[in-house]
Computed example of a mutant assay.
Amino acid sequence: MYELIQVSERSYYIQSPAKMGLVKLNDTEVCLIDSGNDKDAGRKVRKLLDANGWHLTAIYNTHSNADHIGGNKYLQGQTGCKIYAPGIECDFTQHPVLEPAFLYGGCPPKDLRHKFLMAQESDVQCLSKDHLPDGFETIPLPGHFFDMVGFRTPDDVVFLADCLSSRETLDKYQIGFIYDIKEYLSTLEMVKTLKAKIFVPAHAEATEHVAELAQYNIDKVNEVAGHILESCSKPLCFEALLQKLFTDYRLTMNFEQYVLVGSTVRSYLSWLKDAGELNANFENNLLLWQRA
Score class of each variant (00 low, 15 high):
Leu188Gly: 01
Leu188Val: 04
Glu189Gly: 03
Glu189Asp: 13
Met190Thr: 13
Met190His: 14
Val191Leu: 04
Thr193Phe: 06
Leu194Trp: 09
Leu194Ile: 00
Leu194Gln: 04
Lys195Tyr: 02
Lys195Met: 08
Lys195Cys: 04
Lys195Ser: 15
Lys195Val: 07
Ala196Glu: 03
Lys197Tyr: 11
Ile198Trp: 02
Phe199Asn: 03
Phe199Lys: 07
Phe199Ala: 05
Val200Lys: 08
Pro201Met: 04
Pro201Ser: 09
Ala202Cys: 14
His203Glu: 11
Ala204Lys: 04
Ala204Pro: 05
Glu205Tyr: 09
Glu205Asn: 15
Glu205Arg: 13
Thr207Gly: 09
Glu208Val: 13
His209Trp: 10
His209Phe: 11
Val210Met: 02
Val210Gln: 04
Ala211Cys: 02
Ala211His: 02
Leu213Gly: 06
Leu213Ile: 08
Ala214Pro: 02
Gln215His: 12
Gln215Pro: 05
Gln215Thr: 14
Gln215Tyr: 12
Gln215Ile: 06
Tyr216Ile: 12
Asn217Tyr: 05
Asn217Phe: 07
Asn217Thr: 09
Ile218Cys: 10
Ile218Ala: 10
Ile218Val: 14
Ile218Pro: 07
Asp219Trp: 12
Val221Glu: 07
Val221Met: 13
Glu223Asp: 11
Glu223Lys: 12
Glu223Leu: 14
Val224Ser: 06
Ala225Trp: 01
Gly226Ile: 08
Gly226Arg: 08
Ile228Ser: 00
Ile228Cys: 05
Leu229Phe: 00
Leu229Ser: 04
Glu230Val: 08
Glu230Cys: 08
Ser231Phe: 05
Ser231Arg: 08
Ser231Pro: 01
Ser231Asp: 10
Cys232Ser: 01
Cys232Tyr: 02
Ser233Met: 12
Ser233Trp: 05
Ser233His: 11
Lys234Val: 13
Pro235His: 02
Pro235Asn: 03
Leu236Thr: 06
Cys237Asp: 15
Phe238His: 11
Glu239Val: 11
Glu239Asn: 14
Glu239His: 13
Glu239Gly: 07
Ala240His: 13
Ala240Pro: 00
Ala240Tyr: 05
Leu241Phe: 01
Leu241Thr: 06
Leu241Ser: 04
Leu241Tyr: 02
Leu242Pro: 05
Lys244Asn: 11
Lys244Glu: 11
Lys244Ala: 09
Leu245His: 05
Leu245Met: 14
Leu245Glu: 06
Leu245Gly: 06
Leu245Ala: 05
Phe246Ile: 07
Phe246Glu: 04
Phe246Gly: 05
Asp248Gln: 10
Asp248Asn: 12
Tyr249Ser: 08
Tyr249Ala: 03
Arg250Cys: 12
Arg250Phe: 11
Arg250Asn: 13
